[in-house]
């Protein structure tokens, strides 16, 4: 069984110093080169699957120069077997589409049974490599995978995937399939031992080169900008109204206050207050409708 894990190396901006405006709020030392947490989870899932299958070969596939080399070695030390690097010409700027085209070409050579990638990276959070890979390769794709069970002699995977609002969809799919994993959902709890490190040092980087000439890049990054949040629309007084109406609106319309109401006094009044508050915010309706449903089924 061959599992390919797409690993993204990111230049993670972890904090704003707020001290250096020229550098767009981010000082150089504010960044670290690391493996995207979602990719790490993808590796975690791959390790788990291999354990279930009893055997298997985990290949790491990364795109571009090895900027976080040591961290990639750590991934190898954690249990991956091979490392493939898709080399691109230095100058080419890639968008999600061209990246997925390149990756899918590489995957064409790898003959994978399972392709696992992170769902959204921590830096750009485009969240589309997985589905796009599936599209290019003509494979099914399951997003937000939590857990995988192999059935039918490792030819079919029964995947538990998040389906929003805490629901879990159990999806059955024949291999090969593309799975995407959210950051933190398959944490790797062990750390590499000395032997693992030693072994990882001996894994060669297998480079693959594809011509980017034919690949269209539709989305280009123009610039990175300092945080200037887009105005949150709060109702500004309508100018068609007369001044006193505008004043009234102004004096009632500002909603930036985060000073909650305080309930003091006797318990009964407080409980009333809480219930009224919950009701006003619409938290009671589901309960009441649940009650309604129960009533029907009971009757």
């Amino acid at each position: 069984m061959k599992i390919v894990v797409c690993i993204k190396q990111v230049l993670h901006t972890y904090a704003r110093t707020g001290m250096d405006l020229q550098d767009r709020y981010v000082a150089p030392e504010d960044r670290v080169r690391m493996i995207d947490p979602a990719s790490e989870s993808a590796l975690g899932l791959a390790l788990k699957i291999r354990e279930l299958a009893g055997e298997g070969n985990i290949c790491l596939l990364t795109l571009g120069p090895l900027t976080a080399g040591e961290e990639l070695r750590r991934c190898l030390a954690l249990g991956a077997d091979q490392l493939y690097q898709v080399d691109v010409d230095g100058g080419a700027e890639l968008d999600s589409r061209s990246k997925s085209v390149l990756l899918s070409r590489a995957l064409g050579h790898l003959d994978a049974d399972l392709i696992i990638c992170g769902r959204e990276s921590i830096d750009t959070a485009n969240g589309q490599i997985g589905p796009r890979l599936a599209g290019h390769l003509g494979l099914p794709c399951v997003a937000s995978v939590r857990d995988v069970r192999l059935v039918d002699g490792c030819r079919t995977a029964e995947v538990r995937a998040g389906a929003g609002r805490g629901r879990v969809a159990v999806v059955s799919c024949r291999l090969p399939v593309v799975l995407t994993v959210e950051a933190g959902s398959a944490a790797i709890e062990h750390i590499p031992s000395v032997d693992d490190w030693r072994r990882s040092r001996q894994v060669p980087v297998q480079r693959m080169f594809f011509d980017t000439a034919g690949i269209a890049t539709g989305v280009l990054r123009e610039e990175i900008i300092a945080p200037r949040p887009r105005p949150k629309i709060v109702p500004a007084p309508d100018c068609g109204l007369d001044a006193f109406a505008r004043i009234d609106l102004l004096l009632t319309g500002s909603n930036v206050e985060k000073k909650g109401e305080m309930l003091v006094g006797d318990i009964e009044r407080q409980v009333d207050g809480i219930i009224a508050f919950l009701d006003a915010h619409g938290f009671l309706e589901p309960l009441q409708s649940a009650a309604g449903r129960e009533g029907v089924s009971g009757g």
Partner: peptide
């Protein structure tokens, strides 16, 4: 335990990762 087997209590691993990365 750590160097040879790569085992460490799970709750300490994030701290060790923080040390490694940051």
């Amino acid at each position: 335990e750590v160097q040879m087997h790569g085992r460490m209590p799970a709750e300490a691993v994030p701290m060790i990762r923080n040390l490694e990365i940051y």
